[in-house]
Simulated assay, not measured.
Amino acid sequence: MLATGTHLMRSGELEADLTRLLPYGPPYLPELVAAKREAEHGAAPRVAGVADDVARMTAALEAAREGSALPERAAAADALHDLVVRTRLAARP
C-alpha cells in the first residue's frame, strides 16, 4: 500500500500491481510477491528488516504527498458515492 500510494502521489496514476512498482518498494519485493502468490490466501512471509522498510516507505509517501499536485479530495467523490448507493439499492432482492 505504501508503494502504491507513493506512486499515486508522484504520478497521479493508480497502479495496484506491485510488480510494476519495484522502484518504490524494498529490494526483496519481487520475492515477497512471489511468496505471497504461492501462499495465495495464507499469511505473508516474515521478512527481516520490514519495520525499517515500512518507516522508510512511510516517509517517502508523506514526502510525495507534500509535493503532490493531486487535490485533497477527488472531484468526483460525490458522484461516485451516489453511483455506489444507487447500484446497491438496485441490487436488493
Rank of each mutant, 00 (worst) to 15 (best):
G12P: 07
G12W: 01
E13L: 04
E13K: 11
E13M: 04
E13D: 00
E13Y: 02
L14Y: 07
L14M: 09
L14Q: 08
E15H: 01
E15K: 05
A16N: 01
A16W: 03
A16H: 02
D17Q: 12
D17K: 08
L18N: 03
L18V: 06
T19F: 09
R20C: 05
R20L: 07
R20N: 06
L21W: 06
L22M: 10
L22P: 09
L22I: 12
L22W: 06
P23T: 08
P23M: 04
P23C: 05
Y24T: 02
Y24E: 05
Y24R: 07
Y24A: 06
G25M: 08
P26C: 12
P26K: 13
P26H: 12
P27F: 08
Y28R: 14
Y28S: 14
Y28E: 13
L29M: 13
L29I: 13
L29A: 12
P30C: 01
P30Q: 00
P30H: 01
P30A: 00
P30W: 00
P30Y: 01
E31D: 15
E31Y: 09
E31H: 10
E31A: 15
E31M: 11
E31K: 11
L32Q: 01
L32P: 00
A35Q: 04
A35K: 03
K36R: 14
K36C: 07
K36P: 02
K36Q: 14
K36G: 05
K36H: 10
R37S: 11
A39H: 00
A39W: 00
A39D: 00
E40V: 09
E40F: 12
H41N: 13
H41P: 03
G42W: 03
A43V: 04
A43S: 05
A44H: 12
A44E: 06
A44C: 05
A44Q: 11
A44N: 12
P45A: 11
P45M: 08
V47I: 11
V47Y: 10
V47T: 06
V47K: 08
A48Q: 15
G49V: 04
G49M: 02
G49Y: 05
G49R: 06
G49L: 05
V50N: 08
A51K: 13
A51L: 10
A51F: 05
D52T: 11
D52L: 10
D53E: 15
D53C: 12
V54D: 15
V54E: 10
V54Q: 14
V54R: 15
V54S: 15
A55S: 11
A55W: 06
R56P: 14
M57C: 06
M57P: 08
T58C: 14
T58V: 14
T58W: 15
T58L: 15
T58H: 14
A59I: 08
A60D: 13
A60G: 06
A60P: 04
L61G: 09
L61C: 08
E62V: 12
A63L: 02
A63Y: 00
A63S: 04
A64W: 03
A64D: 06
R65W: 10
R65I: 10
E66L: 11
G67I: 01
S68G: 01
A69V: 02
A69M: 00
L70D: 00
P71L: 05
P71V: 01
P71M: 04
